[in-house]
Each structure stands twice: as structure tokens, then as C-alpha cells.
């Protein structure tokens, strides 16, 4: 679950909420600061952190944090 930890840290940094705890089930509806603008910043920070690039479709299809982490894990193992 290293990926989730790292993603959580990125969420805290970008959303400026040091107490934020996310789980695989978390969606944007659960986190007040997670709006469309911050979403873009999250994606960019995650891409930089894990040194990877998502396709337009991948970004579009995530339903929750879990799917985001799955996509990262898939890319890292590829």
C-alpha cells in the first residue's frame, strides 16, 4: 500500500489539508477541497511523483482513489 501512502501525501500537499486521510473508496464527493481545478493539480503532482504520464482516457475513467492507485500500479509494473 505504498502507493496509497504516497498519493495521500500528495493529496495533503495539493489540497492543503494536513489531516486528510484517503482510502481506496474515497471519491471527490467525500473531500471538500477536491474540485475540478485541484483535480488537475493532483494529476500533475502524481505524474511527477511517480514519473509517469496518464492518457486522457485514464484520467477520465477513475471513479475513486482506488482506481487511481490501480492505474499508477499498472503503469509502474509495465
Amino acid at each position: 500500500m505504498d502507493i496509497l501512502n504516497d498519493v495521500n501525501a500528495i493529496f495533503r500537499d495539493v489540497l492543503e489539508n494536513d489531516d486528510l486521510v484517503i482510502t481506496p473508496d474515497t471519491t471527490s464527493a467525500d473531500v471538500e477541497e477536491w474540485d475540478s481545478l485541484n483535480h488537475i493539480q493532483l494529476v500533475v503532482s502524481i505524474e511527477k511523483h511517480f514519473k509517469l504520464k496518464f492518457s486522457a482516457n485514464e484520467i477520465r475513467n477513475w471513479k475513486n482513489v482506488g482506481e487511481m492507485c490501480d492505474a499508477i500500479s499498472l503503469k509502474l509494473s509495465a
Binding site: S36, H39, I40, V43, V44, K53, S55, A56, I59, R60
Partner: peptide
Amino acid sequence: RDWSQYVNADL
């Protein structure tokens, strides 16, 4: 420019 962000978010 980040083309996937352009497509998804009109950035």
C-alpha cells in the same frame, strides 16, 4: 501543453 489535460479539462 498537456494534451490530455487539454482534452479533459480544456486546459
